[in-house]
Write a protein that binds this DNA or RNA. Structure first.
Lengths: 298, 298
DNA sequence: GGCCGCTCATACCTGTGGAGTATAAGTCTG
DNA sequence: CAGACTTATACTCCACAGGTATGAGCGGCC
């Protein structure tokens, strides 16, 4: 009756990931028998087996597989709460903000300055984050707010768009389309388009300038803008990039052309869903006050 | 180092709600001293006090207040995981679906029928739910999916719009506007408009036919459609209602008129964010297959 | 085929720490 | 100032998380 305990979830996830009680126990810094017992107890409490195990191998049941997602989610929330609380508990409470490297870090600095000028503002720390890592940092509590670009994975986040800029096509310098001064999305259909590493279907569709669900042209997988431009320069693909990226990366082997009907590049501020602490609220206010409804100038 | 435990959060929330260690302990079915100790320990682990207490009264610190929101959220997720897991563990796994009473329960029955015809479908239970309670039921795990109407509180939910119908103005029979055969939103500006009990600003703005943030006319608070129509019939307010509500409620003291530019009434299917279990996926598929892009006929 | 190596389960023991009881100590009230 | 309320402290206790030793099932291998 007493409800799930976080410890049980941590144990279960470890076993589910290792699919081996001994290794999982080692990872948890405990012995194997109590771990086996704890899992049995969890199974009794839930009312169904999580694993089918013989002495040779352990596999998740269907029920175990769905419960694994649930358990991971609950633990993610729990660690995020823990991290944010520990940060808020410090003698000098610190708001951690993060942004994608590049343009947004300039925006972020300015938002942070505005925030610090507000009454009741606290210390702000700007955390560096890898490409596309911002949303995860907010979700797992390593950061309180993030500037990130659409379309990002919104699950578990509240957000507010701040600024946008048009996207342009990056074409190999000798591509036939460079003869036109302006393109439309449809002109790129059929061209290979790079896929961002780890991008979801919806994100990839956005970068291709298409609606999700359509067949998407295959293309090389890239991890950052310079890789992307390299791939374009080599003639292996075409791509849609924010105009500011184009302006900061003039290359003789890449030609940029406006795309009239491409959805703009949007930068939004995001924070943990529903967690509008005073500090976060003030920071979001500072950001929207500075940028809302203004077009991003490169 | 070992991370937050659910038990600690339950204790903390109980004390924060009672603001009294003895009563909280009683509610938790335990004695007061261990509860005091547990809270002290939690405070040590987090690194700051949650309460300021003298022997006469207990009050939340600022830190405690923000942590209360966090703790409630984490516990909500945890209980939801628990409830869904226990349901999935049953010998006959059962998907629980809910909807607002009225039109949607008809839709829900049909979606459930379609779902049951799919290969691999499980048992479906249709849960009754109070007005505006559907989203909460999904969030706290009492239901797996819900049919609800926009704009609902999206936090923690994924959703897909299913059907829509136009909204019409409900006017007192002797109101001057009844002389016109069709209205526009602006015609209602300045009229008192009922406020749904518990509605957020954004929701209220939708029911007023206005953008959020504008000044909203004050009006009586109502809890269900019949209350709302009563208030309109008495001449105390005007309101926007879905056309089907108008058709099912002919009243001599209320006159309905189309409103050309009012945002339509939208019914969506919602499920726990990111938790796309096979059963939920199939149910959402059944719903979109039946209704997507069709206009709701009363 | 019998041995070995690997797994998880069972049995039993141990110690930590969560929870109980009794009581002190503080503060407001009449 | 006594009494009614609080929460905190000091202890005792025992449940249960966790450890150790060992059994038991299943393959692979010489």
């Amino acid at each position: 009756m007493s409800g799930l305990e976080a410890r049980e979830l941590r144990y279960f996830v470890a076993v589910a990931e290792e699919l081996n009680f001994s290794r999982a126990a080692e990872r948890l810094g405990m012995a194997q028998p109590p771990l086996s017992r704890a899992i049995r107890q969890l199974e009794r409490r839930l009312g169904a087996d999580l694993f089918t195990r013989d002495t040779r191998q352990v596999v998740l049941t269907d029920f175990g597989a769905t419960f694994l997602e649930e358990a991971r989610h609950a633990l993610e929330v729990l660690t995020a709460v823990d991290r944010r609380a520990r940060r808020a508990a410090q003698v000098t409470p610190t708001l951690v903000a993060t942004a994608k490297p590049g343009i947004a870090s300039g925006m972020l600095r300015r938002v942070a300055e505005t925030f610090r000028a507000l009454p009741g503002a606290c210390r702000v720390e700007i955390a560096v984050s890898g490409y596309r890592e911002q949303a995860d940092m907010v979700r797992d509590g390593r950061a309180d707010v993030a500037l990130l670009s659409l379309p990002y994975e919104r699950r578990g986040l509240d957000s507010e768009p701040l600024a946008s800029e048009p996207r342009v096509a990056a074409l190999p310098a000798d591509h036939p389309l460079t003869r036109r001064s302006e393109l439309r999305r449809a002109d790129l259909y059929g061209e290979p388009i790079p896929r961002w590493a780890g991008a979801s279907e919806a994100e990839h569709a956005y970068w291709c300038g298409r609606e999700p669900g359509n067949d998407l042209p295959p293309g090389p997988v890239v991890g950052d803008p310079s890789q992307l431009l390299e791939v374009v320069g080599l003639g292996q693909a075409v791509a849609l990039v924010p105009r500011s990226v184009a302006e900061r990366n003039p290359r003789s082997d890449v030609t940029y052309r406006p795309v009239a009907d491409a959805a703009p590049y949007v930068i939004a501020i995001a924070w943990p869903a529903g967690r509008r602490s005073p500090a976060i609220a003030r920071f979001v206010f500072a950001a929207t006050d500075l940028y809302l409804d203004r077009t991003l100038v490169s």
